[in-house]
Simulated scan of single mutants.
Amino acid sequence: MEGSNAKGASRRNVLAGAALLTGSMVATRAAAQGGVPGDILSFSRDVREPDLIVPLWPSGRMPGGPVPNVKEAVDDQWDNAGLRYRVAEHVTRPTLSYFAPANPTGAAVLITPGGGYSRVGIDREGYESARWMNSLGVAAFVLRYRLPADRWGAGALVALQDAQRAMRLIRSGGEGRWKVDPRRVTVMGGSAGGHLALSLAIKVYDRTYPMLDDMDHLLTRPDGAILLYPVVTLGEGTHVGSRTALLGPNPSAEAVAQWSFDRSVPGITPPILLVHAVHDRVVPVDHSLALFAAVRASGGAIDMHLFEEGAHGLGLRGDPAWPISRWPDLARAWQVRSGLA
């Protein structure tokens, strides 16, 4: 057993070293070429709101009940840099916020912001990322999903129900309200939102709710996934807040295994881009290392970029001096190479 652990630790060290070298080389090359066009923080300072906000579910037919006795609210604050920081709490009316690009390429992205499954980010990891994607010609959709921490009847499934319905709604064209290529829809999420995005990418055969209309014939599997400092495992080394919110204070071993993605993933999992800081104090970098190994073992496609410095939940607000702040440049290159731009 000790030999096996040592071998695993050695392999993880090699992976970490290789990823750090790759991330640093790419960031250095990007800096030499001018990096990300413009000021990436401009998308955080922008005040543009969604072009359209649509409900996910037909009136009176939302699955996952009974509805908990909570009141939906938005906590509206400003951070120390003067940037707006809204979060949604106790979501009972899940929605999709659509940002239309001025010069559409046909590609689209479903954005699932983090919040530990007890809140949902609106600005950071949400609207700001949508504005950035719009600047690249990508139609962006920000999901305000229901929170398992509120203890819905369907438990942990409610957030995934919303994510699956959102993917179908995007591909359907929203009854003519937008036009996207259904074969170029990426999902992007950070932290617990990264776990939700990963659940969408991996649980592709799980039908989490009864069919409601023709839209529910459409596939929920995204064509690619951009995961920022994601929660991957709910077992040892997990982010305890996310696990408790998703599964309750004393989850069974079976429930933990069902919602952990650190051991094996199906071969049908779409291509993945991973970004993580080695010294992330909220979600350990071991989460991304474990996912990288699991996807590689399945024969899947995964790019991983690790950085020495960086904060959890930075979104587009990272310190420009940190190489990790150039993750949008890496993500864009990955989108183009993967045919998702």
Rank of each mutant, 00 (worst) to 15 (best):
E2K: 11
N5A: 13
N5E: 15
G8T: 15
S10K: 12
S10C: 04
S10W: 14
R11Y: 09
V14Y: 13
L15Q: 13
L21S: 11
T22V: 14
G23I: 00
M25H: 13
R29N: 09
A30I: 08
A30P: 00
G34I: 04
G35A: 14
G35L: 04
D39N: 15
I40F: 11
R48A: 15
P50N: 09
L56K: 08
W57A: 05
W57L: 05
P58E: 13
P58H: 15
G60H: 04
P63G: 14
G64N: 03
K71V: 11
E72S: 09
D75L: 14
D76E: 15
Q77E: 15
D79K: 09
G82E: 05
L83C: 02
Y85L: 14
R86W: 05
R86F: 08
A88M: 02
E89F: 10
V91G: 01
T95G: 02
S97Y: 04
F99L: 07
A102L: 14
A102W: 07
A102K: 11
T105Q: 00
V109R: 07
P113C: 10
G114Y: 10
G116Y: 06
G116C: 09
S118M: 11
G121T: 11
I122L: 08
E125F: 12
Y127W: 15
E128L: 08
R131I: 02
W132I: 01
W132D: 00
M133D: 07
L143H: 08
R144D: 08
A156Y: 02
Q161F: 10
D162P: 02
A163Y: 02
A163D: 05
M167Y: 11
M167P: 06
L169G: 01
R171I: 05
S172G: 06
G174F: 11
E175M: 08
R177S: 14
R177L: 11
W178R: 02
K179E: 04
V180I: 08
D181I: 12
R184C: 00
V185T: 05
T186P: 03
G190M: 05
S191G: 11
S191Q: 10
G193H: 07
A197Q: 03
L198K: 01
S199V: 01
I202A: 09
K203H: 05
V204C: 12
V204M: 13
R207E: 14
T208S: 14
P210D: 13
M211D: 15
M211S: 15
L212K: 11
M215G: 11
D216I: 14
R221D: 06
P222K: 14
A225V: 10
L227F: 04
L228H: 13
Y229N: 07
Y229D: 00
Y229I: 01
V240S: 12
R243W: 06
L246E: 03
G248E: 03
G248V: 07
P249N: 14
E254I: 05
A257I: 04
Q258S: 12
W259S: 00
R263H: 10
G267T: 07
V278E: 10
V282R: 15
V283R: 03
F292T: 05
R296C: 00
A297Q: 08
G299Q: 07
D303C: 01
H305P: 02
H305N: 12
H312C: 13
G315H: 11
L316R: 05
D319T: 06
P320N: 13
W322S: 07
W322G: 06
R326N: 08
W327P: 00
R332I: 07
R332V: 10
A333M: 00
W334Q: 07
Q335R: 13
Q335M: 15
V336M: 08
V336D: 12
G339D: 02
